[in-house]
Amino acid sequence: MKKRIIITVCAILAVAVILGLLQALVVPKYTSNAEGLLTGEYYAEAEGHDVIFVGDCEVYESFIPAVLWEKYGISSYVRGNAQQLTWQSYYILEDTFRYETPKAVVFNVLALKYGEPQKEEYNRMTVDGMKWSPSKIGAISSSMTEEESFIDYVFPLLRFHSRITALEADDFKYIFSSKKVTHSGYLMQKGIDPMVGDAPTDGREELDYTLPETSMEYLEKMRELCAENGTELILVKSPTNSWAYWWHDEWDEQVREYAEEKGLAYYNFIPETEAIGIDYSTDTYDKGVHLNVYGAEKMTDYFGRILAENHGLAELSHSEETTSAWQERLDAYYKDRNS
């Protein structure tokens, strides 16, 4: 009888190991769309940042930590994701505070317009990369659409098992490691795809211009979290010029009111596009929706001056290994930029 128990236990262990291997094999490697790898890359350099950026694709395409360090000596990291919803920003911020306490947090306000989860794929790309913590559990339970179930996050194999019949070479190549795709969270886009025709004068008609309660509620929770940690929360709206992601005046008005009421700084960079020097014939890689690296450098330079002058982030002192770490990151950034 004892022999039988031993065999059963060994069999269970063997099955567990095999399933673990299969899980590593079938989980998407996101080599074709790098947005799935952004969250996970933070943990490799999760200390010594003065500023943390959170938000959706506008934030990781508009601000370059390397340039912020080079020009203003500000150490920063961009924890952005494709369509990162406001509650996901909150939980990622909560997760960040478990590693370090930045002096300032910058939140891109476009995501406030989404009141409920949009697509399961976005949830997975944002949340799967997080290390397991109460923050990850919070992120999952607040983002799940109805068809999703919590166990699919605990065991991604249950969600991605059907990819076994659609494996690619990268699934084997990156089975245990993952490709590095960002420069401290900035996803470099070197392409130039100018905006065609005359600039749009208005975005799509929206059903209702009041910002959803859920996103405002989590914005408030972010503000409280920053206040608790003595961190300044700064709201920004990155420049964009497309009818699809149009920042309607009603939204701008509501965020301005909220910022004044809570004493937060709020910068809407759309009207200041000329002042920043952004030219949509050279500084965008997708016809005006997002900035490419050249546009982002102008944007970061402009925003860096604001941070230094208005938010006391000038002449910051850093430890020896932070400075040397940034030296390497700068070299890597320029190597990638000019290649």
Binding site: E121, Y122, W243
Partner: peptide
């Protein structure tokens, strides 16, 4: 055509 970020 405006692509979703994340290419979905």
């Amino acid at each position: 055509e405006i692509g979703d970020c994340g290419g979905l």
